[in-house]
Computed example of a mutant assay.
Amino acid sequence: MSSNQLDKKSEAWSALFSEPMSELVQRYTASVFFDKRLADADITGSLAHADMLAAQGIISTDDLAAIQRGMTQIRSEIESGAFEWKLALEDVHLNIEARLTQLVGDAGKRLHTGRSRNDQVATDIRLWLRGEIDLIAGLLRELQLALIEVAEKNIDVILPGFTHLQVAQPVSFAHHLLAYVEMFGRDEARMQDVRKRVNQLPLGSAALAGTTYPLDRERVAKTLGMEGVCQNSLDAVSDRDFAIEFAAAASLVMVHVSRLSEELVLWMSQNFAFIRIADRFTTGSSIMPQKKNPDVPELARGKTGRVVGHLMGLITLMKGQPLAYNKDNQEDKEPLFDTV
């Protein structure tokens, strides 16, 4: 089978159409060049789905072995950079499925039994985001420990405490830093709470109304380490609350990062002169050699606007959508990726 034949056959809906998709529409609607970062999650979810299909007798054990073998090769190709991503195949899911079919034949086609791209992408995003939340929560704990380490060295260092940015009462520098430990502790707890709602399985909802195949959704959820299954198929394929909730938690993280950054900028200025930031974390000026600029905290303060903006974008994306899945939801990925 030629590559072009494979691409055509992957367009399952093409039998209804009398002309090919416009190249402009193809480029406008394709997502593969940003959603390919979901590849590992897509493969992981597909392997769990295949395992369940075989356990339920929906596909054969030979099909399962072929799918596992093919996915191992695809994962290796992606990791090495040898995988060829094709715009004509629209997204990460069709690219992987087409390559799998190329490698293992009809077994690759049978992998899609009992599922739709709608519940597939919803599962992939949740799997990917769960992993990112775990990384972010770990980084927040490291940040807290770093602040505690600095605080322990500065218990006896006295700093003016401010209200209204006016000198108020003397405080320990350590006490001031530990305020941020509290903030980032709440952030980490929020991330863990969001994770519970991210970690639910939509797979098995198919396009919007489930499937007549005897799927074992609980088995798939257990294989993927998920805490439960989404209960309503219409909601499962179209819900992006978890992404909005993550963006809200991320926005609060960035608000706290921004507040700390603002204090570092102020404290480093000649007007305050409370702290020095090491040269390796600052920049100079081309015409004013006396300047040492706190570019890192300034950029962190600036990036907060991007994250908060993505929260607003995701809320606006969802506000007018009827049930169930709509192509609008393709626009959830870039803001979510950039937020992370």
Rank of each mutant, 00 (worst) to 15 (best):
L89R: 07
K109S: 10
R69Q: 15
D62W: 00
I59G: 05
T72Y: 01
S80G: 05
R69M: 13
E84C: 08
G108A: 13
H49R: 06
T72K: 15
T101H: 10
D91K: 12
R110F: 03
A50Y: 07
T101K: 14
A55F: 01
E84G: 00
L89A: 10
R99N: 01
Q73P: 00
A107N: 05
S80I: 04
H49V: 02
A48H: 11
R110A: 02
T44I: 13
V104R: 10
D63L: 08
H93N: 04
A82I: 02
A82M: 06
S46T: 06
M52L: 10
A65H: 09
Q73S: 11
G45N: 03
L100C: 11
D91R: 10
W85G: 03
S46Q: 05
E84N: 11
E77V: 01
I59P: 04
D51H: 14
R99Q: 06
I74H: 10
L103V: 07
M52F: 09
A54V: 09
A65F: 01
V92H: 03
G57L: 06
I58V: 13
R110S: 04
E90V: 07
T61Y: 10
L87Q: 13
A54C: 12
A88N: 14
D63W: 11
E84K: 07
R110G: 02
S46F: 08
I96D: 01
D91F: 11
I67A: 05
A55V: 00
S46D: 06
G57M: 09
F83P: 07
S76W: 00
R110E: 02
A82V: 07
E90W: 08
A98W: 02
I74A: 10
A82P: 01
S80H: 07
G45M: 05
A107P: 04
A66V: 01
L100M: 10
A88S: 15
M52P: 11
L94F: 13
V92E: 03
D51P: 00
I43G: 01
A88F: 00
G45I: 01
D91G: 12
T44Y: 03
T61F: 12
L100R: 07
Q73N: 01
R75A: 14
A50C: 04
G108V: 09
R69K: 15
A66D: 13
A54K: 03
K109M: 02
G81V: 10
A50S: 08
Q68A: 14
I74G: 12
A82K: 14
I43P: 02
T61C: 05
I59L: 05
R110N: 07
S60A: 08
L53I: 07
A66F: 00
I67M: 06
L53V: 07
M71I: 03
L64G: 00
Q102I: 00
E79R: 13
S80A: 14
G81K: 09
H93P: 03
D63Y: 09
I58M: 03
D91M: 12
I67S: 04
N95G: 05
A55E: 11
D51W: 06
D62E: 15
H93I: 05
A66K: 15
F83Q: 08
T72H: 13
L64W: 00
I59H: 03
R110Y: 03
I96N: 03
I59W: 02
N95W: 06
H93F: 08
A65I: 00
K109P: 00
Q68Y: 01
L94G: 06
E90Y: 08
A66T: 04
G108P: 06
G45L: 06
G105W: 12
L53W: 04
L103F: 03
M71N: 12
